[in-house]
Design a protein around this nucleic acid. Structure first.
Lengths: 104, 104
DNA sequence: ACGACACATAAGCATGTGCTTATGTATCGT
DNA sequence: ACGATACATAAGCACATGCTTATGTGTCGT
């Protein structure tokens, strides 16, 4: 789970779509395939990349594997972004408020 | 300047180093090469990618080109991160405060 | 026990990415 | 005007990445 892993993982459009789907709630690998025209192994490989990056975590339930957003990845991106806080413009202030308010 | 451009740009370790250097202040292409063992064309190509992503902007000064962090890219990442605010853990609250406080 | 199912892994292939050397373009100093 | 300097662009190459098909592993229902 390094910065390299995280940015590389998010560089792929399919993986960003998967991540966004998971933001709406936990889903298993098959459910994640719906809509995305992709093979089962391809999805499995993408999920592996997302998991190695710390963006997603899994929970086995019988023969299903439920995936969900892993806050660790989110935190890592936030921490990276914080290093460039000197360049946050004024309009980001509202965003910072929003982020804080929603964290409950 | 799309999410794809941004994450792809940051997926490369050399480009992240360049970006971090620029966070310390404006620098020209030659100065950015110091320390990084990389050819002049390679740096030029990296800067082109960073600029296309909206992470960096340039300012010609004679035969020098000064590069600096472009807040647009920062904002774009912040906006992307905001979409997953539901998964910001408690410890991110402090970060949101920090980001807000520093934005002055 | 056995077939069906959910997912992971292996191997091979097409395309993308980052590097190099060579060269082009524009500006500076003298 | 001329060479030196700063940077960009072009072309070619090695390696990484994402996909596919084929197969492996473990779990469920009957």
């Amino acid at each position: 789970m390094t910065e390299a892993d995280i940015f590389k993982a998010l560089a792929d459009p399919t993986r960003r779509k998967v991540f966004e789907k998971l933001a709406g709630g936990s889903l298993n690998a098959s459910a994640l395939r719906d809509g995305l025209e992709i093979s089962q192994p391809a999805m499995s490989q993408h999920l592996s990349v997302l998991r190695a990056a710390g963006l997603v975590r899994e929970q086995r339930q019988g023969r299903f594997v439920n995936y969900e957003v892993d806050p660790d990845g989110i935190v890592a991106i936030g921490a990276w972004l914080a290093r460039y806080r000197a360049y946050w413009p004024k309009r980001m202030e509202a965003l910072a408020d929003l982020l804080k308010d929603m964290d409950q």
